[in-house]
Design a protein around this nucleic acid. Structure first.
Length: 731
DNA sequence: AGCACGCCGACT
DNA sequence: GTCGGCGTGCTC
């Protein structure tokens, strides 16, 4: 018997012979341990075939880890189809979607009966394979004299337990600590026991050293913690449409719970914070499933019965026959997988639903351009109070006089404010005031960002992480005066402190997360932060949300920028569960369509306009687009590889069609663009060139890309579903 | 993805 | 004369 096995690696299925002496017949979907290279890996059986000629050369799989398939037939079929759709090896999708596939293993071996192996008499009995040389194991395996068994280890945790009765030799404090431990039964850590017994940590350590207490491995009971909040009331919609837009956050949860009421439902979330916030208020029974849970927990919950799963993309392959999949906030950037296959979880959910015959629903405040034309239901969006502050007229930078007045009212009225800045650190650029020199990253074609903590501050590349102390004098002209441009969190926070001294200022960004609990308790204050702030609960007395430079959230190089800007603004309007804080936008473009839509309370017009525009320009979703990214340390190598691929593709595509027919102005977008240097031409010391391939017909795209020759020298990476070009640069 | 194999520069 | 850089190819 021969097995086709998919490992969580960027490879297609590999062939192995079925494990010898396995108690089960092979079945697709079972997890199986296999020898791979010098070690052992866990994969999934995708196909079972009869052995064929030449199979004697194959290696034997070691053993199954499951009694019931880990992936069901529908899941396997979906996996293969998703791989095809994303031009990725199926193993890559498996690795992306089930990163917790491989449990810690217990692997034992012995020699088969009668096999004699001089020098290894101890191998007649089962022995832990970890104690043996992998090369020897492989040799014995090849020789056909090795028996193996493997199973997943039960998850355990370590706990401190009493080992002996107290004796006279103990000091009073040690005796007290031991008595405490005996009363508790166990303790999480030495420190925890010391705290519980009211003694110093040294006392507990002495107990452990003397053998009165010690560590035990106990089986870990795995369950998701129960929801923490009061459950919402589901709001069923009769004959729900594909798309539901608008509403307040809590209303959308009620609608989602209404959609899930009949069970067999996956509710898909873009990120952990949103999921946990929903889980806390979801009416039970419900199961959360996301990457914040330990791999052990995810493996334990994988088959747990629950009518409703609130999941991240990692729940997409769970072996269930969903009747309904509800995609929450389908326009969120977080759905895009940043590495590996770079798949898009919403597209994956669509494929999964289609293959299962499940109903698919999108539920968001602002519909994504991709879904805005689907039959929809509009719920009244939150009320907005918007104050555009025109930077072309108002004086003051980075805070206008108007903004300072608003901030000053916050302490007067005993309220709270958020100030949202697009950049962390102090400033996006630093320059010499006399010669205009500016520091750039040595690995990337990007200016170094200035971060202020410390006397001199540091220069940091936000792309590659390179960091160096900021110079005291200009290295070119020796000038001592520096200028700054592009205010970041630190600069704005400093400015708020200076202009409104009575207002307590907190900072919140990836690099500095102040404790916001005083604000949560209702104390007066302002938080200056990046969009990381959107992943914290809104302060209860929130009265003002200020964007000192709203366009900072509108990067020019990205065709999705207006859509994202619009979504962000609406998200701000929906931050607080009941209040409508004043949204003050300092901007050079106070009449931007996104701002106008916000003022008018319109959540669909911007995506609708964008859709028209994308059709005209031949951008997704009007076409399927794939970006090919060629990179190499040598610019010429990267460019040559891109050019060569371009030539190959040009031949494949054939002669350009004559000018698009007049009746169809959006007719045929140029199928191939580039090669062109990437928006950031050099990243981490590698030059990057882009080719863009697009077509109305995805099958056509696949045909063009089939057997694309591997580039010479350069590395080729494919973005099969580009969502903004910035993502291409990340690893 | 990892890992080995293989071919050209700075060194005990 | 070797160590080691990463470019290339393979994994059953």
């Amino acid at each position: 018997m021969r097995l086709s096995i998919l490992l969580p690696l960027p490879l297609g299925p590999l062939s192995y012979l079925a494990p010898e002496g396995a108690p089960l017949p092979p079945r697709p979907g079972l997890r199986v341990a296999v020898p791979f290279r010098k070690g052992m890996r866990v994969g999934v059986v995708v196909e079972v075939e009869d052995a064929a000629e030449g199979d004697f050369a194959l290696r034997h799989a070691i053993g199954y880890l499951d009694a019931e398939p880990f992936l069901d037939e529908a899941g396997l079929a979906f996996l293969m189809r998703a791989a095809e759709h994303y031009f990725a090896p199926p193993g890559q999708l498996l690795a992306d979607l089930v990163p917790f596939l491989e449990p810690p293993l217990h692997h034992e071996v012995r020699l088969v009966d009668g096999a004699v192996r001089p020098g290894l008499p101890q191998l007649a009995l089962w022995r832990d394979a970890a104690e043996l040389d992998p090369a020897l194991l492989d040799e014995l395996r090849e020789g056909g004299v090795l028996e193996e068994r493997v199973r997943a280890l039960k998850p355990t945790r370590k706990t401190l337990v009493p080992l002996r009765e107290p004796t006279e030799k103990l000091t009073p404090k040690q005796r007290a600590a031991l008595e405490t431990l005996r009363a508790l039964g166990e303790a999480e850590s030495q420190t925890a026991l010391a705290a519980a017994a009211g003694v110093g940590p040294g006392v507990v350590r002495a107990l452990v050293d003397k053998g009165y207490a010690g560590w035990r491995e106990v089986e870990l009971e795995l369950a998701a913690p129960p929801p923490a909040g009061s459950p919402i009331r589901p709001l069923p919609v009769p004959e729900p449409p594909t798309r539901v837009s608008g509403g307040r956050h809590a209303e959308r949860l009620q609608l989602a719970a209404g959609l899930a009421r009949e069970g067999e439902t996956l509710v898909l979330f873009p990120e952990r914070y949103a999921l946990e916030r929903a889980y806390d208020r979801w009416p039970p029974p419900v199961l959360p499933f996301h990457g914040g849970q330990s791999p052990d927990l995810r493996r334990a919950l994988w088959r747990e019965a629950a009518p409703v799963v609130l999941g991240s993309y990692q729940a997409l392959l769970m072996p269930r026959r969903w009747k309904r999949i509800v995609v929450m906030d389908e326009g969120s950037d977080s759905y895009k997988l940043a590495s590996g296959s770079r798949a898009h979880a919403v597209r994956l959910a669509e494929l999964r639903a289609e293959m299962l015959g499940a109903e698919l629903h999108y539920l968001s405040l602002t519909p994504a351009v991709e879904v805005v034309e689907k039959p929809g239901l509009l719920v009244r969006p939150p009320r907005t109070r918007v104050l555009p502050i025109d930077l072309r007229r108002e004086r003051g930078w980075p805070l206008t006089g108007r903004a300072v007045e608003l901030l000053a009212q916050v302490p007067e009225k005993g309220r709270q404010a958020l100030v949202l800045v697009a950049r962390r650190g102090y400033s996006g650029r630093l320059f010499c005031k006399s010669c205009d020199w500016q520091p750039v990253c040595s690995n990337c074609d990007l200016p170094l960002r200035f971060h202020k903590p410390g006397r001199r501050g540091r220069l940091v590349c936000h792309q590659c992480g390179h960091s160096e102390p900021a110079p005291e004098v200009c290295p070119v002209c020796g000038g001592e005066v520096f200028g700054y441009a592009g205010p970041g969190v630190q600069w704005v926070a400093e400015e708020v402190r200076r202009r409104v001294p009575s207002l307590p200022v907190y900072q919140y960004s990836a690099e500095r997360k102040d404790d916001l609990s005083p604000l949560q308790r209702g104390e007066v204050g302002v938080v200056v932060g990046t969009t990381a702030l959107l992943r914290t609960p809104a302060p209860p007395e929130l009265a003002l949300v200020l964007l000192p430079y709203a366009e900072g959230f509108l990067p020019a190089s990205d065709f999705r920028a207006p859509e994202r800007y619009h979504r962000l603004l609406w998200q701000l309007a929906d931050l607080h569960p009941s209040r409508s804080p004043l949204l003050a936008l300092q901007t050079f473009e106070p009449d931007h369509p996104a701002v106008e839509a916000l003022i008018e309370g319109d959540v669909t017009s911007v995506p609708e306009t964008e859709l028209v525009l994308r059709r005209m320009l031949g951008y997704p979703p009007a076409v399927r687009m794939v970006v090919l990214e060629f990179s190499h340390r040598q610019e010429a190598t990267a460019r040559a590889a891109a050019m060569e691929a371009a030539e190959f593709l040009k031949k494949r595509i054939g002669p350009e069609p004559e000018a698009a027919e007049p009746a169809d102005p959006a007719g045929a977008p140029a199928p191939l663009l580039g090669p062109a240097p990437a928006p950031v031409p050099r990243v981490r010391g590698r030059y990057v060139f882009h080719l863009i391939l697009r077509s109305h017909d995805p099958a056509q795209l696949a045909a063009w890309l089939r057997d694309l020759p591997a580039p010479k020298g350069a590395r080729l990476r494919l973005d099969p579903d580009p969502v903004g070009f910035v993502g291409l640069l990340e690893d």
